[in-house]
Design a protein around this nucleic acid. Structure first.
Lengths: 333, 333
DNA sequence: CATTGCATGACAAGCGATTGCCAAATGTTG
DNA sequence: CAACATTTGGCAATCGCTTGTCATGCAATG
């Protein structure tokens, strides 16, 4: 169970006939040690089964070789890809990956950050629920990379919702729709604001009416109320805040005998697991989720190492693309 | 970004007029310090914004207050619940939660364990792919809790597949099916063996024929081959290794114009996200996923603290229940 | 009132690395 | 061959906290 006695730098040093510092440098700063010596030390280390103790390393150096990712809720398949991308990137760089859920709560988020502060080199905040000011404050003390969220001056990666939403509007417009309704996500959600902004701007351009309803909980369960609200609105197309909500809407519409897309078109965001096999299959805006997670960790890693050429926070915008399936169709006559 | 200077036990000690050890005990061993002193120290700590450095604590004490969970692949929604349950339980106990993916590889799994060994108090291994011997070896040096896997002498939690599979067989038998085929998961999968064992035993009892085909990759993409194989077998009911595979099968059958459940009944395991809204909605064996994750972490925590009353490895068996939906029906005449 | 027993708190030695500084060894150059 | 520039390796302090050991002061006991 518990290890009796681990081999340390000293064991290796003694066995190899060098100083402990040399062993340390062999691992952490190889160019400071002679190639031959290095090889020898590594061989001895190998033979003794030595691995540097990450805690001791972190304590002294301040580098923990660990990043933490905070996600609102794992119940949303949307985050799978992002989580996986982040984990993969971290692992590839020999970085330990900590995952936490914030239950959609800004307080929990903040709390977890404080709690983990000393144990990690940085945080990936996915769809953070914290207000701008709080986030900016935290960024002063911690290394942050945001996903799907923009805060002035902070680095991060977003999936291009603006142009994606335009595509969505164009798609609907081309099908003859003259009015659409956006069923909004959580109140404080940056993404919801962003999407609505793009949607309404696009709608105006195309000369079609756009209204916003909500907020609705961005879950399948939120679909009931959302669908009913959409029906009352009289619009011929609904754009849901995300696929979870859209799927819930499809269900409710089926229950109420509203035919999709004949009577009403429905679209979502994220292209989550299941979006292709619900009925009808969902038209949705897809983005490179995994890439987003990867890029966010990348940002963290870069900031940690070369803080050179830092001409501003690193911002990454990833392209989105519209996946047209069966839930959208010509506007009813 | 980087903290300039953190407050330490010494700062607090000086400010509070006590020894550093007293401050330390105030946090780690409260009963060793006078209530009044304790209150005072805590107040000072609060005022100074002091939090013990988890790394330093871990380095000295050997307790890291961290657990790691290793999961084959996050692409399978099946694991969401388990991950979430584990994270919740850990967080509730003020334990940091590390998540890693093993890509269905025993080597990766083993490697990650070695790598994290010093940084965590224990591992939750979900659907571990490692052979029994390896697992037992590792358990000698590390604190393990298995999920959905049984290895002699090791603690863990499983969802009762045996009785669940019986329920499944009974359900099919009662619908008049006289032959079923099990489309098996990965070759080395303990779960696959377990399910087949229970399925075939149950089938024999009910006097119906059971065959096993595969292995198939336990993913939606594996469904094509699986469905075709099932059709050739001539059985009237197929039981897929998991819902992912089952959903893939449903798709393929739809493509081929085979009507489910009229011509063929299909069932899966796990009751994953989407199992209720695929077409037809999937009959599947559901289990308390979240509870499993929670229980596994619990085991780890108990082992770490009270290693008393240890009359054997702790084993938890969680009940499963059959969710009957539309993908199973009367056997064709 | 002297004695014994406890509960507290202080000291100091680690836990296992990293790293600034300096000395020795090596190689280069005139 | 002397003089100097570079490497390379070693010493020792340090990161922030835990914990065994021991001294102290107090209350309880006879």
């Amino acid at each position: 169970m518990t290890t009796p006695k681990r081999t340390t730098v000293y064991d290796v040093a003694r066995e190899a006939g060098v100083a402990a510092s040399t062993v340390s440098r062999t691992f952490g700063n190889p160019r400071r040690v002679n190639a031959a010596t290095r090889r020898h030390v590594l061989a001895v280390a190998e033979r003794l089964g030595y691995h540097p103790n990450p805690l001791a390393t972190a304590l002294q150096s301040g580098r923990t070789a660990t990043v933490a990712m905070l996600v609102p809720d794992i119940a949303n398949p949307h985050f799978f890809g992002t989580i996986r991308g982040a984990e993969r990137r971290a692992t590839a760089a020999d970085i330990t990956f900590i995952l936490g859920f914030t239950d959609e709560s800004a307080d929990t988020e903040r709390d977890k950050i404080e709690r983990l502060a000393r144990s990690v080199d940085g945080f990936v905040l996915a769809s953070s629920r914290m207000p701008d000011a709080t986030t900016a404050d935290l960024a002063r003390e911690h290394n942050l990379a945001l996903i799907d969220r923009e805060v002035d001056g902070l680095p991060g990666v977003v999936i291009d919702n603006a142009s994606g939403s335009r595509q969505l509007v164009d798609h609907l417009a081309s099908l003859g729709h003259r009015s659409l309704v956006y069923l909004s996500g959580p109140h404080g959600s940056w993404l919801a604001g962003e999407r609505w902004r793009a949607l309404s701007a696009g709608a105006e351009e195309r000369g079609i009416a756009a209204t916003r309803l909500g907020p609705f909980p961005p879950q399948v369960a939120g679909g009931g109320a959302a669908a009913d609200a959409a029906l009352v609105s009289g619009a011929t197309a609904v754009v849901a805040h995300n696929d979870l909500l859209a799927i819930g809407i499809l269900r409710r519409l089926a229950e109420r005998g509203v035919s999709v897309p004949d009577q009403l078109s429905v679209a979502g965001y994220d292209d989550i697991f299941g979006a292709d096999f619900c009925v009808p299959a969902l038209t949705t805006l897809a983005g490179p989720q995994e890439e987003a997670g990867r890029a966010a960790v990348e940002i963290l890693l870069n900031k940690a190492s070369a803080r050179a050429a830092e001409d501003g926070p690193r911002r990454v915008v990833l392209p989105s693309h519209l996946v047209i399936r069966d839930s959208t169709g010509p506007a009813p006559a």
